[in-house]
Design a protein around this nucleic acid. Structure first.
Lengths: 337, 337
DNA sequence: TTGAAAGCGCTAACAG
DNA sequence: CTGTTAGCGCTTTCAA
């Protein structure tokens, strides 16, 4: 609580002030033991008095630990990812790590730049959330711990994932139980593993209900609101409304489908029922509200956070893959009248 | 593109490999001049060949520059803030800075911890977005450049802000022009400067239209969906619908009001017209869609980014305060029938 | 145009 | 229990 000094003071200044060596100050500050109660108090007092904060760069250089975790995320503007970051932030604050956030904008080149950046910054670990179809393996980072969320390259160590298959199953079963028999699968055209799993769930539900799979009912689209709208318009124009249910692999697609359907005079849920994926807050407030699959962002973040920490501390990771349960959130878009 | 070496190589290794001194390697890498074309090529080639990346911590320690910017944000899950971060990320990637994101959860204590963290990490600058009523001045960080967004302590150097007064004015004028005469002001109860400015705009529009201000029409609430709902319920129960328009100081409040009104049998916009603030994507898709004030997140982020950079490079800042224009986004919630 | 060497602030071995 | 000291990997004088 003193006036700001001309120059930031170093451990040497503190040592002088406390009348001990820098080693002792360091020991006390890091709680490494090997000092008397008395010196501890003395050091702690001087540290507080002069408001000393160790220079993180020096510490990092010396210990080869930056206490930084890099997080690569496709789009922080997407509520699903934002929630994960939020939870990660809380988790890592507790563990005294800072988060270096890299919003890759789903852009390969940017991701490369970011990775390079992170290496240079000497991050202790990376959490890698990719929207990409396939992630290339980052050979240059083989030395630093990476935990993947959602997707990962073949030789990756750790992957955290929602139970996408179950999600696809729950979504489709909900539609079937509401009486749908021709369920459109509106899926991300980048045929990533998460999407394949959701489709697998869709197929399982279909089979269980004795409804044959119809390839004409599967449509790949770019998972963006505008693109989904355009595709839905086209489908309606060319094929008409040849379906009575839609399982969309994310909420934005679901929303786009509903909007287009309603603009063409179809009623949701009366004529067509719809289920989305992610449980973005929009789904609760749009009209009709959208039945969707909740991904447990908190558990995902927690699992990812714990895993990087384990990796950093060279603990054995039990499971290469952690699967986080999902749940169906029932709303108006699948209501039976 | 060689096999991963046992240990990360240092500038010394590169120097040996290239047959020059470490000083020369450093000079070339930093483009500081004072070397021949030939050595430059030689060094660059070896650097590429062995995939050398300088140790950022060593650089930072030596130069006292971390090339990190700390960003403190109340809630990254809020689309408005997420967008700002997104734009900041893009801006600073170009300028070779990394972003240390601190999600303060609108919590003073957390903010303190984060600040401490950032100091220790030796960030070159801080961008501080606070949801708080009044920000306390961080005396211990007087030495490092801080740019504030939205709110700032008295003695702050730089503040970036939307034109909140104009926003309040536009919102209220829209309601007045749609025929409203009893306009409820549903405002954040934390009476921060941004909110005061929005109210000032509200008053200006009222005055311009010759409508007297009525204190009974001003209600302070915690700006959260659930709290806003509860308050609206109470208002309706106690006072009935004694208003024909609502200006809510954020979109979540606006949404809550609309939902409650409709559940009580009032029609929006026929009986009550509503304007929100922020232009969160929800407002476009809910029913009815909500007229709102757009804050230009990109310009805000750009201004903030440029300002920290200027501060870091000791450039003179022209204006202590930068005001970013806002715009009215007209939607169904203020439509005249 | 280049190299030698000091030192950024800290930790950790080693010696006492 | 405490101090001395050698670096961590880099930049930057200074001298050549």
């Amino acid at each position: 609580m003193k006036e700001t000094p001309d120059k930031k003071l170093s451990i040497i200044d503190v040592a002088k002030l406390a009348g001990v060596s820098t080693a002792t100050v360091s020991r006390v500050l890091n709680g490494n033991g090997g000092y008397s109660k008395k010196t501890e108090e003395k050091v702690l007092r001087t540290v507080k008095e002069c408001g000393f904060t160790p220079n993180g760069n020096a510490v990092s250089l010396r210990t080869n630990r930056s206490h930084c975790i890099g997080v690569i995320v496709p789009d922080i503007t997407n509520e699903f990812f934002a929630k994960i970051i939020h939870e990660l932030d809380i988790f890592f604050l507790e563990h005294h790590y800072s988060l270096l956030i890299c919003d890759s904008n789903e852009d390969y080149e940017l991701e490369d730049m970011y990775i390079h950046n992170l290496i240079q910054k000497n991050v202790d670990g990376i959490i890698y959330i990719s929207g990409q179809d396939e992630i290339k393996n980052i050979s240059s980072v083989e030395t630093i711990p990476i935990v993947y969320i959602d997707r990962c390259p073949k030789n990756a160590k750790v992957l955290i994932q929602s139970d996408n298959e179950e999600g696809g199953y729950l979504a489709t079963r909900e539609l079937l139980e509401s009486g749908c028999r021709n369920i459109l699968l509106m899926r991300d055209l980048r045929y990533a593993s998460t999407i394949r799993q959701r489709k697998a769930g869709y197929l399982r539900a279909l089979e269980e209900a004795g409804v044959p799979y119809n390839g004409k009912l599967e449509i790949g689209i770019f998972p963006d609101y505008e693109d989904a709208r355009i595709m839905m318009e086209r489908v309606l124009k060319v094929m008409g409304c040849y379906f009575d249910g839609i399982f969309a692999t994310n909420d934005r697609i679901a929303l786009a489908c509903i909007q287009v359907l309603m603009q063409h005079g179809y009623r949701v849920p009366e004529d067509v029922k719809v289920v989305g994926f992610d449980n973005v807050s929009l789904t609760e407030f749009c009209n009709p509200s959208i039945t969707t699959i909740t991904q447990d962002t908190r558990s995902i973040a927690l699992a990812a956070g714990k895993s990087v920490l384990d990796l950093i501390h060279h603990k054995k990771i039990k499971e290469k893959m952690t699967v986080i349960p999902v749940a169906l959130e029932r709303r108006h878009s699948t209501e039976t009248v």
